[in-house]
């Protein structure tokens, strides 16, 4: 069985992500070099922290080009929370900082008048199609979100001060704004399905 590598470029809740894979019977390894990102059969990009700081670290470690390449190619990659946001061109969180730009558009703040951070379980509405995400409640912890549909990606939606992207998929890439590793049995099944499906890519 092919391996799972977790990108560990900074402090994130890597332990929670690793524990989710343990429960699925997989022992993930860590990846922090361009070679490891290129080599990984399956790569997890967890993310907490700020957009700009995350991109700075990726640049510093020479990971921007290899990440772009594997995502463009649709190789099995699971991007979580901030890991999803950095796929886009930029974010209002860190003006002037470029993201990976493999998905079009800008990550924005929630509108005024709703609680932010958006903390907790919220309902996800998938669009029917291949790689469908099971509808139901998933756990979110985000202050920024994407409110448009990036061309070329399948999308699932959520609602908090207007509709925003809960997840996007393309090829073997699954990018979630929510935390599948913290979303109970639904999240656990989603990770399990990504693992199983990623054998096809």
């Amino acid at each position: 069985m092919s391996t799972v590598a977790i990108l560990t470029t900074g402090v994130a809740n890597v332990a929670s992500v690793a524990a989710a894979f343990h429960r699925l019977g997989t022992e993930p390894v860590t990846a922090e070099t361009p070679e490891a990102v290129e080599r990984a059969d399956r790569l997890v990009v967890p993310g907490v922290g700020a957009f700009g700081a995350a991109m700075d670290r990726l640049h510093g470690l020479g990971l921007v080009a290899p990440l772009r390449k594997r995502i463009e190619a649709g190789r099995p990659t699971l991007a979580i929370c901030l890991g999803m946001q950095i796929l886009f061109e930029s974010s209002e969180e860190s003006p002037g900082c470029e993201g990976l730009g493999v998905a079009s558009g800008v990550v924005g703040a929630f509108p005024g008048g709703v609680r932010s951070p958006h903390f907790g379980w919220n309902r996800v509405h998938p669009r029917p199609g291949p790689g469908t995400i099971e509808p139901g409640h998933y756990y979110f912890a985000n202050s920024f979100r994407v409110a448009h549909h990036p061309a070329g990606w399948d999308a699932a939606w959520c609602e908090h001060g207007g509709a925003f992207l809960a997840a996007v998929t393309r090829g073997g890439v699954l990018a979630c704004q929510f935390h599948p590793e913290l979303s109970g049995t639904l999240g656990q099944s989603l990770i399990g399905e990504w693992l199983a499906r990623s054998d096809q890519w």
């Binding site: 989710a20 935390h179 913290l182």
Partner: peptide, 12 residues
């Protein structure tokens, strides 16, 4: 914390 984490699939 580590022992709880291995079993827990919700936020801690």
């Amino acid at each position: 914390v580590a022992a709880i984490r291995e079993r827990l699939a919700i936020p801690l």
